[in-house]
């Protein structure tokens, strides 16, 4: 078997008496879509925060593409190929749709003052490539007509898609999606599903936190049920959904 893209071993984290991660171990390979399910407060988003370096683990290790990333700051993990979307989107609210995407390109080098002022040929070429790529992504997401609008003018579903677009623009080998479907319906729902499926086909390792069961069932190869920071069970989506014990935990019967 080939080396998984994301490998996690024995991850632990607590805040005072609250355990948000208790001995989490998982592997996500290229093309896998792993669903993380469980009730609110189970530690799903906390796991993402540990993976991205927003929180620092008490114990355990994380590898991305064979490189240990668990001591690196967030921006370095991102540069190594970790990409994520946010439950609350966290878009750059004062900027246009297009600018939200352009700033997300992993090769963006305009954050040097001097380079930005001098605009050497290399920067102009990078910008042109980024613009092409961003246009392609916006077309995929059905947002090409809105590219010059300020993101705060768009609907909730469209904003979720822009969050996804930002992650696509950033690229990387591993994609963490935090409730991509919450509040999304209609055309945006179908687009999102298609995009996630397509990204997996292109060889990305994808983790999805999601409460929308049909989304998980349609897309994920396997899933992990989390509760109180622990992985209660992992297996196929159908298995987990069929379990009496887990649905009791989920719905708090």
């Amino acid at each position: 078997m080939t080396e998984p893209i994301l490998r996690v071993r024995g991850l632990n984290k607590h805040f005072g008496g609250i355990v948000v991660a208790d001995d989490i171990s998982l592997d996500v390979g290229a093309g896998d879509i792993l669903g993380l399910i469980g009730p609110n407060g189970a530690g799903k988003t906390s796991l993402f925060n540990l993976l991205t370096g927003h929180y620092r683990q008490d114990a355990g290790r994380i590898w991305l593409g064979g490189t240990a990333i668990d001591t690196l700051p967030m921006f370095k993990r991102a540069r190594l190929g970790l990409s994520r979307t946010w439950q609350h989107m966290r878009l750059f609210q004062s900027m246009t749709v297009l600018d939200n995407l352009l700033i997300s390109a992993s090769e963006y080098r305009g954050d040097s003052m001097l380079r930005s002022l001098l605009r050497p040929k290399s920067l102009r070429e990078e910008n042109r490539r980024s613009l092409d790529r961003a246009s392609g992504i916006l077309a995929r997401l059905g947002l090409d007509r809105d590219r010059d609008k300020c993101v705060s003018e768009l609907t909730f579903g469209q904003q979720k898609l822009i969050g996804m677009g930002r992650a696509l623009m950033h690229g990387g080998s591993c994609l963490l999606l935090d409730e991509p479907m919450a509040g999304v319906e209609g055309a945006a729902y179908e687009t999102m599903k298609e995009v996630v499926r397509e990204e997996a086909r292109r060889g990305r390792a994808i983790c999805v936190v999601e409460h929308n069961v049909s989304f998980i069932r349609d897309l994920c190869n396997s899933a992990v049920f989390m509760f109180n920071g622990r992985m209660m069970r992992s297996g196929s989506v159908a298995e987990l959904l069929a379990s009496e014990e887990l649905s009791q935990l989920y719905f708090g019967k």
Binding site: T52, H54, P73, M74, F75, K76, A78, R79, S83, R84, W86, R90, L91, F92, Q93, S94, M95, D99, N100, I103, S104, S106, Y108, D111, R166, H170
Partner: peptide, 15 residues
């Protein structure tokens, strides 16, 4: 502007 709007999201893009 992106940094000012959301520092966390900005860092998560490798910036």
């Amino acid at each position: 502007r992106a940094m000012r709007d959301d520092e966390l999201a900005f860092s998560m893009l490798g910036r």
